[in-house]
Design a protein around this nucleic acid. Structure first.
Length: 584
DNA sequence: TAAACGACTTGCCATGAAGTTG
DNA sequence: CAACTTCATGGCAAGTCGTTTA
């Protein structure tokens, strides 16, 4: 770990030395008393050399390593669940090391112990082939609990929490719970108007508890904040969510940015990612916040009468299965749908449509505060792109001049040969202009995405059916009605266009489909090659929906040619939605 | 009834594999 | 084909939320 910034941190060094001393023999403890006097450069060099040696391996040696990894994957990477082979997510025990944690973690530097078979609980059915522990060892326990999904578990030594071996997201088990999650979010659509009027009414409640709950729920809904469970202090970095906000995390401005009643949020959320936002709120919210903050210190809880448990209990009464995080899923998905509708135009080029999709995705990521560190290569690769654009511009100028010359030539000659030259030059210019447009769209996309992470929302929050419906809407009306309803606008990034009816897939007529279809009934069939029942075809994406015309489910197998285009857009969805795309 | 526990989802980042370019 | 860039995957920490325990 030498060379990492955190080895210079006092907390890290203290925790490490403390744990290290516990591991020492008595004689060592006598000698090694100060970390500052320890020199690790030799062992550090050993590991650096080892990493360097790996890099320069020959082709054959690399191939061999790859084959060995593949063998491990084959032997340990799969299990049988309900008679089907399923891929396991993490089948390796976490190796020992020094705990880092994120942000200012009080436990950074502590030793994460090596896990032995004696620490591991195995969970599998009684009549199955129970895994053998390594020679000379025993499992901590073998149990057969079919009410849980994990295959093995152990207790991790730093936080004293349980770690699990579970299935891969492409498994039926995970896919179906993900689907259920989106179904719950979609159900919220039918309740959300009522819930919103309810919490608005509750802003005037006689009971402080109810008012606090109503204001918190407003934030969870409008700003997609996380619930914010209580945390034990000293056990982890000081981060908060909605219910655990403290007075110091909000500032009230009677007027700011030309708006009245502005609330300024500034706090560290999950993973110590800063949430900073200034939002105009409705007057009663503002007045209530003033009330909640009265005669409190900065470290006091803003919502002192509210817990995530009481909030979720309330939500459960409003709708079966409703909890705070459902609002994040719902608002993320409906925002994607609305943005796709607002941003796509039928006449746009494929490149422009991809930009629109990414922008819609970006609005969601910003709503959910999914940030990333600017990639280390960002500046350089941006520069490369600009260079390319410049070169393309010159090519375009050159082609334009050539076209002009050819036109003059044709005028002078007027024969068939000069005409075909003219045509050729015209086509060349068109092609180059198109390439230039694509590059500049790419640059825009890259720049806008500098500090925004799209993966998390695509994987966890965006109903893949919306993306698919958008991809295959074939000139009929988008959006489908999956997450309809008025919703309300939040931090719009891009000005909506009024152009209706996008048709992102160029070859609409090539697909023999008629009738209406929408994401409401759009079903993703499951071409998962890993499954032993072998559903679906590799190389074809199959989407099914209920068609009015046929009165039943219709299956659409997209032509392989659309694979690249679709996978470019849907790539990030694939992990969690059992949707497998293998373009040929 | 609150704290602790257990099981699961969500989150960011580093890595290495795959793709692209000259 | 090497050098470079991009992307998918794995890793594991950190949340959410229901249940159990003290």
């Amino acid at each position: 770990m030498l060379g990492h910034e955190y080895t210079t941190k006092e907390v890290f060094r203290k925790n490490f030395f403390n744990d290290w001393r516990k591991e020492m023999a008595v004689e060592e403890r006598e000698v090694i008393k100060s970390l500052d006097k320890c020199d690790f450069t030799e062992i550090h060099r050993y590991f650096v050399d080892k990493a360097a040696a790996r890099k320069v391996l020959s082709r054959e040696e690399k191939q061999k390593l790859k084959e060995e990894a593949e063998k491990l994957q084959q032997e340990f990477g799969y299990c049988i669940l309900d008679g089907h082979q399923e891929k396991i997510g993490n089948f390796k025990i976490e190796p020992p090391g020094l705990f880092r944690g994120r942000g200012d973690h009080p436990k950074m530097g502590m030793l994460k112990r090596r896990i032995m078979p004696e620490d591991v609980v195995i969970n599998c059915s009684r009549d199955s082939k129970i895994p053998e522990p390594p020679a000379g060892h025993q499992w901590k326990e073998v149990r057969s609990d079919n009410t849980v999904t994990w295959l093995a578990a152990w207790t991790e030594s730093v936080q004293n929490s349980i770690k699990y071996i579970m299935l891969n997201p492409c498994s039926k088990l995970k896919g179906e719970t993900a689907w259920q999650k989106f179904e719950t979010a979609r159900r919220l659509r039918g309740f959300v108007d009522e819930i919103r009027s309810q919490y608005r009414a509750d802003w005037k409640s006689r009971e402080m508890k109810t008012r606090q709950r109503a204001v918190a729920l407003y934030f969870i809904d409008k700003l997609a904040l996380r619930a914010g469970n209580e945390k034990e202090d000293g056990e982890a970095a000081d981060t908060v969510g909605c219910c655990s906000l403290r007075v110091e995390h909000v500032q009230l401005h009677p007027e700011a940015d030309g708006c009245q009643h502005v609330v300024e949020f500034d706090f560290l959320g999950k993973d110590c990612i800063r949430y900073y936002n200034r939002v105009p709120v409705e007057k009663p919210v503002y007045k209530n916040l003033q009330l909640f903050m009265e005669s409190k210190g900065p470290r006091d809880n803003l919502f002192d009468r509210l817990t995530t448990t009481s909030l979720n209990k309330h939500l459960q009464e409003l709708m079966d299965g409703l909890t705070a995080k459902v609002f994040r899923t719902y608002n993320a998905s409906i925002t994607l749908q609305e943005q796709l509708r607002a941003l796509t135009r039928a006449e746009d080029s494929i490149a422009a449509k991809i930009l629109s999709y990414n922008r819609a995705n970006r609005v969601v990521a910003i709503l959910c505060n999914h940030q990333r560190a600017t990639p280390s290569t960002f500046e350089k690769s941006m520069q490369n792109l600009q260079t390319k654009i410049q070169a393309k511009k010159e090519q375009v100028a050159e082609a334009r001049a050539e076209l002009r010359r050819a036109r003059a030539e044709h005028k002078a000659q007027g024969d068939g040969k000069s005409r075909s030259v003219l045509e050729k030059k015209r086509r060349l210019l068109e092609k180059l202009q198109e390439q230039l447009a694509q590059l500049s769209v790419q640059a825009t996309d890259k720049e806008e995405n500098k500090q925004v992470a799209l993966g998390t929302s695509k994987l966890n929050y965006l109903d893949p059916r919306i993306s698919i419906a958008w991809c295959v809407c074939l000139g009929s009306q988008f959006p489908p009605v999956a997450y309809g309803g008025p919703g309300f606008s939040r931090r719009p990034l891009f000005s909506p266009s009024t152009a209706p009816v996008p048709c992102p897939l160029g070859s609409a007529q090539a697909l023999p489909v008629t009738g209406t279809h929408d994401a409401e009934s759009c079903v993703i069939s499951s071409p998962c090659p890993e499954r032993s029942d072998g559903q679906g075809e590799v190389g074809v994406l199959t989407v099914a929906w209920d068609s009015e015309a046929s009165g039943g489910p219709v299956e659409l197998s997209l032509p392989t040619g659309s694979g690249r285009w679709l996978s470019a857009l849907l790539g990030g969805h694939l992990g969690h939605s059992r949707l497998s795309l293998t373009p040929r």
